[in-house]
Write a protein that binds this DNA or RNA. Sequence first.
DNA 1: AATTGGCACTCAAGCTCTTTGAGTGCCAAT
DNA 2: ATTGGCACTCAAAGAGCTTGAGTGCCAATT
Lengths: 340, 340
Amino acid sequence: MVSERSLEVLRVIVQDYVASREPVGSKAIVERHSFGVSAATIRNDMAQLEEEELISAPHTSSGRIPTDKGYRMFVDQLADRRPLSAAQRVAIETFLGQSVDLDDVLMRTVRLLSQITNQVAIVQYPSFARAQVRHVELVGLTDHRLLTVLITDTGRVEQRVVEIEHPVDAHLLERLKSRLNTQLIGSNVDASAAILAAIRAETDPDEEVLVDRVTQALADQFAEYRHDKLVMAGAANLARTEDDFTGSIYPVLEALEQQVVLLRLFSEMVVERGGVSASIGRENESFGLGETSVIASNYRSSAGELARLGVLGPTRMDYSNNLAAVRAVARYLSRQLGDD
Amino acid sequence: MVSERSLEVLRVIVQDYVASREPVGSKAIVERHSFGVSAATIRNDMAQLEEEELISAPHTSSGRIPTDKGYRMFVDQLADRRPLSAAQRVAIETFLGQSVDLDDVLMRTVRLLSQITNQVAIVQYPSFARAQVRHVELVGLTDHRLLTVLITDTGRVEQRVVEIEHPVDAHLLERLKSRLNTQLIGSNVDASAAILAAIRAETDPDEEVLVDRVTQALADQFAEYRHDKLVMAGAANLARTEDDFTGSIYPVLEALEQQVVLLRLFSEMVVERGGVSASIGRENESFGLGETSVIASNYRSSAGELARLGVLGPTRMDYSNNLAAVRAVARYLSRQLGDD
DNA sequence: AATTGGCACTCAAGCTCTTTGAGTGCCAAT
DNA sequence: ATTGGCACTCAAAGAGCTTGAGTGCCAATT
């Protein structure tokens, strides 16, 4: 079993290692922290920690560095719930202060989060599965080309260009539009697919091509609403912390470009209500991100949908700060979006 | 003056150096290329090239590498107009084959370009200054919140959320909407600003707040149409070619996140009609991109607007291939978008 | 039982020294 | 204009050495 003090030793090892990026030795510990015991005693404690695989030595005669398990223990039990710095609070207020447009808010949020953590920040768009149709617009662009626009009560807008072989009659278009609006408004994304299918079934052959194309486009758009989407910022920070990766940061940057990977990673993390959660090092190996840690939390959109946001960085990151930052930004964002 | 053969020597130095990333010596040149002269002769030629600052030696007794000026000469006079490989042609066809939505096409294009060049690819959205208003939609979201949607004949859609202190009367909204549509439809982005101002001036005090907010939002949206926007892909490729940068790739990644920088860089490049152009190394210094080269071309959107696209990578890049790829993709994209 | 000082031991990192070999510059001969 | 020859240069790689932070263990102390 690891003693109380040993855990304290683990804490300072994590802290010092993260701060200095150098293996931490017993002597350095007694110098920098007032444990009131000698270096030899710390060494004994470190032997315990090594026994438990919470720390390890890069080579026989050097200081120790935390293992993934050590970081895990630190995050779960040892990280102090330090509040954000005053500067960080101010940054949140000023950055997110005024703006109502969803795209805009999320863009600001992700930049903010990357700035106060110095990591890659990621914000997922709300999934909108429960979003209700507010309006459908059909707009002719040219003779053969029209635009379908889908608007939901969450303020999200999706458009799509539809191509029709023969010129489109304006009246037909108008009729189709009001029919779509009558039937779709108020229904949610799931229900809408069925409604569109029904409309297609009962259609006058004259309008067939038009209706077919338009309903198909709308169906696609509904499908897109389920597709999660995300915004990212601060990828350059990975280059700053390059040394923390054994090889190159190439695979990490690649994974970041594959947004699907991040969405899966996000979705597999368990985040309890109102909390914040971390996925550390090798825990992310299956995503090709075995040398990185991800810290995630939830926020609630105006429609009440949950979505995630968080940061990603090298396993050797400042967990205390990042946990606090992600938690604070998630809360602030929920408040910001929920105020209607 | 540099002799004919000397230029040929410069060509092989650029080619070999780009391929091997190692300084090229006289002996290696006579071995790999059949110049029919001895190494000593090549050395004399190299002395000429060095005199003209087209090549330089990293250290006294090593091979030579091209200077920025050498690359410039290569691009302007020596790069062979090699056609794309069959594989690359196929990639273009299959990647961009079917899809009409602008967002979608540009996204595919940028991915494609980054794939066939192994560089960072950048595609600018058409500027839409000449785009005409096709439709304006106002949609109530909640009592206090509504959405303004602006649709142009290019198929681009911009939306914005507007917040109003008091509940919005549906009839008022309807009236405002038809008024806006009547006056704005058909006018271009520039003219619309004036029209909106006029509407605001002649407004009944009852509607004042509503009209004010809505016109303001629309004005913002028009402004945004002038803001250029771009999509990017393949940033990970920078990490692959890390060694080509003296320090870290951090400043480069940072510049890439500042899209404004790229837009300025793009806009300052002179690209002649139907051509492709390169900006090499130090020529980009003022953008913090002194160790990178940018290859750009133009494409023409369906509305006839010009926009740029290109790739960015280390100065030591395969110019022949990248010039060909950018040219081909730009042409293909123009054709794809112009077919209405 | 926990803590401590002491001591031998280890090993990466940094230093100097040497060797190696690719490559140059120059010159006299062709 | 081209060439072979030759002395010279210098980065890179390797060997050998020193240094010092750090460990592990043990017998002595509290």
